[in-house]
């Protein structure tokens, strides 16, 4: 039951993009086509899950025992950056097709605040997650990101063909659409 609460909460109620404003850069930047947004979602899910496992272990078995939790930000970002680099090298060797699909998105992920945000949230004392719960939380957030960006890309493909006022074309219209999507997601408030 607690897992269902975590999953529904992360995907719908506190959607990482539309309610928490994390990962807005890829949300706006790589959502002009559905196919690229699917690739980006795959890369985010992969890295977010791995990064949460690694940073959870580092936080609880290195930072807390040595009482250096103020190094959280700096150690997390280094771990994420090197993890992304490693994933890129391993994927290239082990699974070229997957590398073809995700490759160009991987370097972008280092500065995706959704990853750093979720890894920090997963060890927040008021959540008190176990490792499994943390991983479920990360996967659910990645699904929430995928849901938001793929739906948005679908809308944006159509938005290009619509006659919007000249000064609203491009980014402004996209933001208004995102606002309406966020409004729709607010309907989920209170279900868990």
């Amino acid at each position: 039951m607690e897992y269902i609460v975590i999953i529904i909460g992360a995907i719908f109620v506190n959607n990482i993009v539309l309610a928490q404003f994390l990962g807005i850069c890829p949300y706006i930047g790589v959502s002009s086509k559905v196919s690229t947004s699917i690739g980006m979602s795959g890369a985010v899910m992969f890295v977010m899950t791995l990064a949460t496992i690694v940073t959870y272990l580092i936080y609880n078995y290195v930072l807390v025992p040595f009482d250096v939790t103020y190094l959280q930000t700096i150690s997390y970002i280094l771990v994420i950056a090197s993890l992304v680099q490693m994933v890129e090298i391993v994927l290239k060797k082990v699974s070229p097709p997957l590398y073809q699909a995700l490759g160009i998105f991987l370097p972008l992920i280092v500065t995706n605040c959704a990853i750093l945000g979720v890894t920090i949230l997963a060890v927040r004392p008021d959540f008190d997650y176990t490792l499994i719960q943390g991983v479920v939380f990360a996967i659910a957030n990645a699904i929430g990101f995928a849901l938001a960006i793929i739906l948005f890309a679908g809308i944006r493909e159509h938005l290009d063909m619509v006659d919007v006022p000249k000064d609203m074309r491009g980014a402004p219209a996209a933001f208004v659409v995102a606002g309406i999507m966020a409004l729709a997601f607010m309907g989920f408030t209170g279900i868990v």
Partner: peptide
């Protein structure tokens, strides 16, 4: 209230970008 909540951020920024474009 919608402007304090999440959707207002997106919509507000959209219009501010349009004004800045002008």
């Amino acid at each position: 209230l919608v402007f304090v909540l999440a959707p207002g951020a997106f919509i507000g920024l959209g219009y501010l970008i349009a004004i800045n474009n002008i």
